[in-house]
Design a protein around this nucleic acid. Structure first.
Length: 490
RNA sequence: CGGGAUGUAGCGCAGUCCGGUUAGCGCACACGCCUGGGGGGCGUGGGGUCGCAGGUUCAAAUCCUGUCAUCCCGACCA
């Protein structure tokens, strides 16, 4: 039905790229692995951003901004951190260009005394800064977030899911006690879970990462894991308890109430534009993008239908009054009065773009005081009395929001299975993909072997969901207190 | 970074194997008329250094070398 969109069952990866292109979310830049986020894609990000930002403020955080460039020496201070990021850093070595016959070249005389690293994440520069902000327990906690871009030199990239430069937010907090820092880590994980479910309509499993999947430099990494339509998992957000690792590396101490000098306890947490990829792969269909109303840049579009100029006039008037009425209810509405496109073309295009609600008005409707209503996720047309339109739209936008979450939850449930031995584990992965709960002995050797043999990784050790009960590891037969969550992942 | 594929108008493609008029088609775009409740019709137009750089040749989209980018599969990662 939709031109230019490859059906999911034919080629899921191609479908994903087609959606991004046809819905006008982003495109490739001339530089490998980077993307241009187009206005529609950026509007989605802005909506996500403002919802999250409000949640951060509500939990006591403030925004600040730290620089893009980090002195090379900073990266070497926390051993695990260095090791984790060393292989994917962009390095600035020179500060000038000179004109040549063929254009420009790097001026060899402009070599920097200390090279600069384009931040892959900001822990180091932030902790170097916090050291100066903190002297006493009275200076704590520091609850700061920043919205920024970061660069990680990736081998293989995919629009939104993994790009060399991406947009994100990174929260960095400093606390006087371990308990407080852990509570902060858990609190922000909960913020992410709430955001994913309430705004993105994307159900997630919360849990703890294993040592091998842990953030470089963290003591514990918590995460939200989502399940995409093709049965692959997506890490959608992380919240790290950093212990005193960075405080020690950057000599960040405070004098406590008891007069003793102690190292500060830290957290960091982030979500990125990767979430947009998750959003696409959670709800969209073969006709194009489907996005929850709370995140949709345009929530309702009005399409006029007319033949003659007289009809055009009355239909436009009817539509404009309706638009104002919807606007006054706080609905993001667009009146598609473009002359160059036919109604049928507009219908198809709005579906590709994922506008949640479409209202069609023609001469017949003006005559009969009706409006045609269609919801993007349902597709059925419904003729409404003019008087009930606005209320209906308000109700249906809210309903669509919960319907999308319910549908995604049902799909997650349907694609979550338990394996009690390694053979059935492999069989489930090959036949269905999805989430698989299984017993694991807790060793990284076993984890590595499973990954090697099946491509599945431990997504997390679930916090509150999933099957309870002890058993034995499907590989080693050693005791396991609880099943952990496996999947092949993006 | 290894293996494979691709790059020709804004988009999708043919032409490349086997070099030879003015590089073609569909959609989109501009203009006109008919149209308009699910991607309309007819007509007339505009738009290309064939990814880029070298080379072979009387002659290169086509052959050779290099390079950049994209996609898929691996290794690495949010």
């Amino acid at each position: 039905m939709a031109k230019n969109i490859t059906p999911r069952d034919k080629d899921y990866s191609q479908w994903y790229q087609d959606i991004i292109k046809e819905a006008g979310l982003a495109e490739h830049s001339p530089v490998r692995g980077c993307m241009v986020i187009k206005p529609t894609g950026y509007a989605i990000w802005e909506n996500m951003k403002s919802a999250l930002d409000e949640m951060f403020k509500d939990t006591g955080h403030q925004n600040a901004y730290f620089p893009l460039f980090i002195p090379k020496s900073f990266l070497s201070k926390e051993a695990n951190h260095v090791e984790g990021f060393a292989k994917e850093c962009a390095v600035v070595t020179h500060s000038r260009l000179i004109s040549t016959e063929n254009g420009v070249d790097v001026d060899p005389d402009s070599r920097l005394e200390e090279e600069l690293i384009v931040r892959p994440t900001s822990e180091t520069i932030i902790w170097d800064t916090y050291r100066n902000w903190i002297q006493s327990y009275r200076d704590l906690p520091i609850l700061v977030n920043q919205w920024a871009n970061v660069v990680r030199w990736e081998m293989r990239t995919r629009l939104f899911l993994r790009t060399m430069e991406f947009l994100w937010q990174e929260g960095h907090t400093a606390h006087a006690t371990e308990e407080e820092a852990v509570a902060e880590t858990r609190q922000m994980l909960e913020v992410y879970r709430t955001f994913a479910e309430d705004f993105m309509a994307m159900p997630v499993i919360t849990g703890v990462k294993t040592e091998s999947e842990r953030f470089a430099g963290a003591v514990e990494t918590y995460c939200i894991e989502a399940l995409m339509q093709d049965g692959k998992a997506l890490q959608a957000g992380t919240s790290h308890f950093l212990g005193q690792n960075f405080a020690k590396a950057f000599d960040c101490t405070f004098q406590d109430k008891d007069g003793k000098v102690k190292h500060v306890w830290a957290t960091s947490w982030g979500v990125s534009t990767r979430l947009i990829g998750g959003l696409i792969m959670t709800h969209s269909d073969d006709n194009g993008l489907v996005i929850p109303p709370k995140i949709a840049p345009v929530q309702a579009v009005i399409v006029p239908v007319y033949r003659k100029d007289e009809e055009r006039e009355v239909v436009f008037e009817y539509a404009r009054v309706l638009m104002q009425e919807l606007k006054s209810e706080g609905i993001r509405v667009r009146f598609d009065d473009r002359e160059q496109f036919k109604p049928g073309w507009k219908f198809a295009q709005h579906e590709v773009e994922g506008i949640p609600v479409r209202l069609t008005v023609g001469p017949r409707d003006v005559q009969n005081e009706k409006v045609e209503f269609v919801r993007r996720d349902k597709g059925e047309k419904k003729l409404l009395d003019r008087a009930e339109v606005t209320q209906h739209v308000v109700v249906q936008l809210a309903q669509m929001q919960t319907d999308l979450l319910d549908a995604a939850r049902a799909r997650m449930k349907q694609n979550t299975r338990e394996a009690n031995d390694y053979d059935s584990f492999k069989q489930i992965l090959d036949e269905h993909g999805g989430f698989v709960y299984a017993h694991w002995d807790g060793t990284s050797e076993t984890e590595a072997r499973i990954k090697e043999e099946t491509k599945a990784t431990i997504r997390c050790i679930p916090l509150s969901s999933g099957p309870e009960g002890a058993g034995v590891c499907m590989i080693s037969g050693k005791p396991s207190t609880k099943k952990v969550l496996f999947a092949r992942a993006y």
